[in-house]
Design a protein around this nucleic acid. Structure first.
Length: 281
DNA sequence: CGCAATGTTCGAAA
DNA sequence: TTTTCGAACATTGC
């Protein structure tokens, strides 16, 4: 479920639930969830480690442990659930369980089994694989206009596809990419290298603003997302385009249209978001 | 039955 | 070589 706002909300929940706890043992029921290292090593290395803090980079959660970094990506449906005691009934979709020395436990659930975890040496998470390639966090001080402009100029892909590329800016996913483009009045199929300077400035500001608002709302719950405390998000009431096929655009009342862009469902207002054939100076 | 679903990766094609 | 495309991963629900 997670795009940046959902992952950030999960991070906050985990922080209050498991910070300071010591791992006593780990169960892994679906080996492919563990990307690195070998499952046996993964499990044994975690024993005795304490959760110092929980960070986030893009859509990745990074558990800072006493002697390692645990990287976790929820992909489409990953969820963390905290329990004070070990339940007799293990849910069918529980794939990893971290048992703490105080008897409580953190379980990782993932219906589609797309999520991944990796245990890397202390303080090296930021240089691990895809984490190292992530673009800037979407904040005013880190997401710089000039870099964004340069990256856009080098790609002819549809702007929406480009926004989903985590090397552009970290954390945008399908819901927020749709929302951002609607708000910035840019057609999702507009080639990235044909955006005007004005549009790029507006797009950058909108990305920062939309994600910020969504974080404050605790994320968006469309189908299954809940945070680590089991709570749903609230941003779904603020959606203007995503999932609004045939419903009137909140700005001009033209029905929202759904198309496919880069294999992903894409919603937009054909009146507010017009495709330009040529770049205008 | 068929398709789509908050995502990323990897091999092939251009 | 670089960029883009599209299948694959796995399961559920409409």
């Amino acid at each position: 479920m997670p795009e940046l706002p959902e992952v950030e909300t999960v991070r906050k929940g985990l922080e209050q639930l498991i910070q300071g706890k010591e791992i006593q043992s780990v169960d892994v029921f679906w080996n492919r969830i563990i990307d690195y290292p070998d499952v046996t090593v993964f499990k044994s290395s975690l024993i005795g480690q304490t959760i110092l803090e929980i960070k986030r980079r893009g859509k990745y959660l990074i558990f800072k442990l006493s002697d390692a970094d645990l990287i976790s990506h929820l992909r489409m449906e990953g969820k963390y659930e905290y329990q004070l005691t070990s339940p007799e009934k293990k849910s069918k979709h529980t794939h990893v369980v971290f048992h703490f020395t105080d008897g409580s436990q953190l379980s990782y659930h993932d219906v589609r089994k797309f999520g991944r975890m990796a245990l890397v040496p202390k303080d090296t998470a930021i240089s691990y694989k895809a984490v190292a390639l992530l673009g800037p966090e979407p904040t005013d001080s880190t997401f710089l206009l000039e870099d964004f402009e340069n990256k856009l100029a080098r790609s002819s892909r549809a702007i929406k596809t480009q926004l989903l590329d985590q090397t552009m800016v970290a954390g945008l996913g399908n819901i927020y990419a749709n929302e951002v483009l609607w708000e910035a009045k840019i057609h999702p199929e507009q080639p990235a290298n044909t955006l005007t300077k004005k549009e790029i400035i507006r797009l950058r500001k909108t990305i920062i603003a939309v994600l910020d608002r969504a974080v404050k709302a605790g994320g968006t719950t469309i189908r299954s997302y809940v945070n680590a405390l089991g709570e749903a998000g609230h941003f779904q009431v603020s959606l203007n385009a995503y999932g609004k096929t045939n419903q009137p655009c909140p700005r001009c009342l033209t029905p929202i249209v759904k198309i496919k862009v880069g294999q992903r469902g894409t919603h937009f207002c054909p009146n507010c978001q017009k495709l330009r054939r040529r770049k205008i100076k």
